[in-house]
Design a protein around this nucleic acid. Structure first.
Lengths: 190, 190
DNA sequence: AAATGACCAAATGAACATTTCAGTCAATTT
DNA sequence: AAATTGACTGAAATGTTCATTTGGTCATTT
């Protein structure tokens, strides 16, 4: 068999989206990087957005794998959850494509990119929600609404990492773990 | 004495900023509404931004009064805090000038408006931080970093009100109070 | 001394010209 | 005949020009 053109296209597009973002990536550009005629791209993908969506689906899968790894050991639930949330936000900060997309959503607001970021966030939330549900069932934590809890936990992490850093020196990973435990698990009440 | 022109100007500007936002408000417009010559405005304010800042200072004071009222009764600390945070976000959602400014910051990103919103948020944070500090001193809550705690609490409220509403039916005020207590004060640990 | 509005330079945006780009399809290659 | 290609197209983005608007000043009026 010949070369896998679809793979070449996806790789080229990933490279270009990572470097220039979604809007600034042209199909001609992708075709050139992939060493493929422009028309070939349209034999595999209906349009630019579908190509983008396929790449994002991979990204989401990768992200899920990363998060799931955090739940493998036999640490207490709150530590596993900390690990998972931290990895998710770490991913967002270190993965080139991720960085570029958040930047594009913030600075330009490209609709397709905003949509995709919401899709990612919803996936994360559903994942956390499921973990919380299981933890309630197994009695690891108190009963609570898993959906609300997932939103609260993710936003707490975003607050501790991104919002805090806007005006203050960043917190260390273990500081964040301690704060997470203190606020959400132990509580501030005496 | 004649009419208080400064007051007329401030009232006119407040009206116009509330209706059209900062950028879309012209000094000519303000002068006209205030029934005052344009030059008169510049005898009281160095420029458009200073006029804006003075109005925002009032807004911040008003907001502080609203928040402080929540701490008057003799409810438990977490209930007072809930009341204060809720009032602050309620204010943001019902006060016309506030609404318009958040909209302008989001949709246009006018620098002067973004600055002003940060100023408001910092004021809120400092206020909460102080209340938390006092609560620690008086032994109402466990020891914790008041600054981090203030950020966490405010962001938790924003999550429960604004972020939650993006994908779900809004939570009632007393539901929010219960969630706040459950997550931050009691904790999820068993 | 306080208030004013005509005036100016800079910013804005409407109108038009040009370029870019996503997507198509007839021709070419395998 | 199936897969691949790149020249082509209309629509949308971008660049350009220029008249209008606007923040701020200051000589004149009150």
């Amino acid at each position: 068999m010949g070369i896998d053109r679809k793979k070449l296209i996806v790789e080229a597009a990933t490279k270009s989206f990572s470097q220039f973002g979604y809007k600034a990536t042209t199909i001609d550009q992708v075709a050139k990087i992939a060493n493929v005629g422009k028309g070939t791209i349209y034999t595999f993908f209906k349009n630019k957005e579908e190509l983008f969506d396929e790449i994002i689906s991979s990204l989401i899968k990768e992200l899920k794998v990363t998060a799931d790894e955090a739940f493998l050991g036999d640490l207490p639930f709150h530590e596993k959850l900390h690990q998972a949330l931290y990895q998710i936000l770490e991913f967002r900060m270190s993965h080139q494509l991720s960085i570029k997309l958040f930047q594009e959503a913030r600075e330009i607001g490209t609709p397709a990119v905003v949509d995709v970021i919401n899709r990612m966030e919803n996936n994360i939330l559903r994942n956390i929600e499921e973990r919380v549900s299981k933890a309630i069932e197994t009695g690891s934590i108190q009963s609570c609404d898993p959906k609300v809890t997932a939103v609260v936990m993710l936003k707490l992490y975003i607050a501790l990492i991104f919002d805090w850093e806007k005006n203050n020196p960043p917190l260390e990973k273990d500081e964040i773990a301690k704060l997470f435990e203190q606020y959400i698990f132990k509580g501030l009440a005496k």
